[in-house]
Design a protein around this nucleic acid. Structure first.
Lengths: 208, 208
DNA sequence: GTCTTTCTTGACCGCAGTACACTTTTTCGC
DNA sequence: GCGAAAAAGTGTACTGCGGTCAAGAAAGAC
């Protein structure tokens, strides 16, 4: 019963959410976030306007929902065993790959995230991402892999920044440089390069 | 003529812009950016709604205009003689001070800037800030003060990130830590601490 | 004065989000 | 099975705000 009964209603509900979600993302990619109206979305999803708000309280909530899905992937990475360093890198490299696969959507996610990070108390998926990375850093500090003379949150700041920096570099190269070989540098490479600078600062210095 | 005639109209225009600008900032501080309506602003500035859009194409343009004013200060810092390092630091420390003096407004500026940085081609004041810091970095590379094995834009990425990281740390400490002594760490201190990690990566390594 | 240019005005539009009364579908006790 | 309660969906009407626009007022040139 628990399987079949929870079914019908729950299933239909999930299906409707999915239809709205997918329609919205399609339209965002086709016409951009701003130019897509709720009416566009509900028409394509074949539901009434009010139904949209049953599932997503605001238009941006669709983007937040997408962020949540991507976050699932990130959580799997963090849960893996082994040293902290590679997992941290993989976390950001994964984000970079998501970005390359779907720049338009990723940009919307990033833009929304950025806004959230600017306010003292980020909420929802970003708060969880926050805690996720923080836990990973604390683990690294406990195991002696990461330096402990600075607080975990400082290290988190550097790490997050490293990614932001990579993004900026990537955007910069792409828009400024007419050389196509340089323009084709991947974001993943950009993240790797940034490790050579900022990320190194996080590690325990063996020579000093 | 050029002095007296440029007067009347020109003067009134500037005065109207100022009145709208100041009213807007006041209201943003009193009720927040979102909750302030254009009607609120125009009512306080005692002009018609349409007049607002003669001066600021969008609501956020008020924030951009504020950013532009702050940017003037930054440009003076960059123009100063001497080694590049202290000027770079002063640039960000200045921003940090502006932040501490007026957190609410600065947060809005930051939020808007963040959004702009996320798109490949930042425009307006941010583009100029971009060029400003880039020029400073190139100067440092030319004089041998900053490492040249990485492109100027990479270093810029690290530098900008450093500031973002400091902000995140600052927010984090403030919201999480109940210890008031820790909560009173200034953003300027935060920036300084971040230098110990990310910023060091920029410098020419003398021992290696 | 009158002509031209520039600025101001308020009515107007489109869209996000709300409210509500109503229909349809699903669940579940009996 | 059946019928009532609960939940999800529909459609419409409404509010509020960001942003536009055409017509009118003010400033300067002559």
């Amino acid at each position: 019963m628990t399987e079949a009964t929870v079914g019908r209603r729950e299933r239909k509900k999930e299906e409707t959410r999915r239809r709205i979600f997918v329609s919205a993302l399609q339209l965002f990619q086709e016409k951009g976030f701003q130019s897509t109206t709720i009416d566009d979305i509900t028409e394509r999803a074949d539901v009434a306007k009010g139904t949209f708000f049953n599932y997503f309280p605001r238009k941006e909530a669709v983007i937040e929902y997408l962020a949540e899905e991507w976050l699932q992937v990130a959580e799997d990475v963090v849960a893996r065993p082994g040293p902290v360093g590679p997992r941290l890198i993989e976390l950001y490299a994964g984000a970079a790959r998501a970005y390359e696969e779907n720049p338009d959507l990723a940009q919307m996610v990033l833009r929304t995230s950025m806004q959230r990070f600017c306010c003292p108390a980020p909420e929802g998926p970003w708060r969880r991402f926050d805690e996720l990375v923080m836990a990973l850093i604390r683990e690294g500090q406990a195991s002696g892999e990461l330096r402990s003379d600075l607080g975990a949150r400082v290290l988190y700041g550097v790490l997050a920044s490293c990614f932001v920096g990579a993004l900026m570099w990537w955007f910069g190269e792409r828009s400024e440089d007419p050389d196509p070989s340089l323009r084709d540098v991947t974001l993943t490479q950009a993240v790797a390069t940034l490790q050579a600078t900022a990320l190194d600062g996080l590690k325990v210095r063996k020579e000093a």
